[in-house]
């Protein structure tokens, strides 16, 4: 027999054996997976940002298919369109959710909250927060080391060198909430985008007494409660010496903005006022 024929026989036989093994293993260990998981996962953005509260897009898809329900399952990146798409795949009803955006509830820029000491060390808010109250002296204010910027997967944040505060780029923000989690001081909040992106919020979370807060930061909320009285819609509550505007109730009348003695309430994307007086809040940085 010529060597060629031997080679063909040997290789052919071994090919058959291996094919049989592969076939057997395939049959034996086949994982049956709902094909809809792939379909849902396909529809998802695939950024694995964790904004939905799951480890990644696939985990999110698996949970939807397993529970056969969209309840509490919302991908902030894809928004309502995506929910509709997933609903179609699953044969479920989609529920509309108001689009949201991240807002920075601190206006303690370098100008408003002068440094009382120099921080040196790891550029991490989480660490600096454990170390001290921060150069501004405010125990609740922005530390300006950019953990939120670091956490943003969508290029929607950057650090303003001049103010030392992060800036949220509204058009890029998908309200995934990564920055909310990254901030050790819970300054960033997801709020409804509002009509024409108009929003009003208290840009301060300081819970210290008014006098102390004001000493550290000139635009701090001092908990005076003037805005609460001014609001005709019961949208503002004063808790822990700091005011909070409920975005579900707020009708964007802007009365509170003019009422605030420190300029801690910020209005965004409104047309300029007809009144002549200059509002310090126009130079906000959100």
């Amino acid at each position: 027999m010529s060597p060629i024929i031997i080679a063909i026989i040997v290789l052919g036989a071994s090919a058959l054996v291996f094919a049989a093994i592969i076939f057997g293993v395939e049959k034996q260990f086949k994982v049956i997976e709902d094909p809809r998981i792939d379909e849902v996962a396909e529809a998802l953005p695939g950024a694995n940002c964790g904004g939905c509260g799951f480890a990644g897009c696939r985990a999110f898809a698996e949970t939807i298919v397993k529970n056969e329900s969209l309840e509490g399952m919302f991908c902030p990146v894809g928004g309502n369109d995506l929910t509709a798409e997933i609903a179609a795949v699953m044969g479920l009803e989609a529920e509309e959710k108001a689009p949201q955006v991240a807002v920075l509830r601190c206006n303690g820029s370098k100008k408003h909250t002068p440094e009382k000491f120099i921080y040196e060390g790891a550029q991490s808010c989480a660490f600096a927060n454990n170390l001290s109250a921060g150069p501004g002296g405010c125990p609740n204010g922005c530390l300006g080391l950019g953990d939120c910027v670091e956490s943003c997967e969508f290029n929607a944040m950057y650090m303003d060198e001049e103010t030392g505060l992060p800036v949220i780029i509204e058009d890029n923000c998908v309200s995934c909430g990564a920055c909310v989690k990254a901030c050790p001081r819970n300054i960033i909040e997801l709020r409804n985008k509002g009509k024409k992106s108009r929003r009003i919020f208290v840009s301060c979370v300081n819970t210290e007494k008014g006098a102390i807060a004001k000493k550290n930061c000139e635009v701090a909320c001092i908990g005076c409660g003037k805005c609460v009285k001014a609001c005709a819609y019961d949208a503002i509550v004063l808790e822990n010496k700091v005011a909070y505007i409920d975005f579900e109730k707020c009708r964007l009348c802007r009365k509170c903005v003019t009422e605030c003695p420190t300029g801690a309430i910020i209005e965004l994307n409104f047309p300029p006022r007809k009144v002549k007086e200059e509002e310090s809040s126009n130079e906000t940085n959100v």
């Binding site: 060390g121 790891a122 991490s124 989480a126 660490f127 454990n130």
Partner: peptide, 12 residues
Amino acid sequence: PLLDNIRLGKYK
């Protein structure tokens, strides 16, 4: 800043 980062890690 090794210890800074380690402290943060220990805390987390």
